[in-house]
Write a protein that binds this DNA or RNA. Sequence first.
DNA 1: TGCAAAGTTTCCAATATTAGAAACAAGATG
DNA 2: CATCTTGTTTCTAATATTGGAAACTTTGCA
Lengths: 106, 106
Amino acid sequence: METNSLKRYELKAEMFKALSHPMRILMLDKLKERPWCVCELATEVGIDKSVASKHLSQLKTAGLIDDEKRGTLVEYRLVAPCVLELAACAEGSVLQNRRKRLETGG
Amino acid sequence: METNSLKRYELKAEMFKALSHPMRILMLDKLKERPWCVCELATEVGIDKSVASKHLSQLKTAGLIDDEKRGTLVEYRLVAPCVLELAACAEGSVLQNRRKRLETGG
DNA sequence: TGCAAAGTTTCCAATATTAGAAACAAGATG
DNA sequence: CATCTTGTTTCTAATATTGGAAACTTTGCA
């Protein structure tokens, strides 16, 4: 297997890594409703603004959200809502499977 | 924000974490073609069988793949192909966005 | 029984991620 | 200019992830 083959999956993997933290999914869910600035969103989800800023930065790097400066505020907005619907789809099929496994202890 | 709200996203986050490693996406891509046993797949993607086993274990825990013992072999098979199509869709929208950002240095 | 093959688990060292505090930068406003 | 607000970056310690070697289990077979 060539190194190149693995390389083909790196960007995709980074996108999934951005989605791999419950707090970041929660933030995306909030951003689905409307744009938020950092402080406001940090308060809403109950974390420090520096932590929120870093999470948002990761989501932006992954291409999931975008930002726009508005005076002293930075407004973040969802770029790819389809990703969340995909997550919902996954919840339907994959997570059912996973829950079943957890229950049966398999 | 209640702890419960964040808890709602943990299973979803774990699924995405399972997808957050390029090697695991590559392995899923192989499993999309047909079922593989551990040694065979490990050789195909060029890693140690113990590493392959651990990656497959993570994918199974996430509910993305399933396994079946066949004598001394363990055959792994894809459970939720939709997830990979999801990834492909994401490649179309999100990754384009991300590549643009990488090029412009934003 | 003895041995080989397939997988899993354990151990280790290297690396990455995370939260939060503190320092810092950039606008807004009096 | 002084200061406040917003947001990012830096620093630290705790925790998690990773690959590979080695030990181990299980199954098949002579």
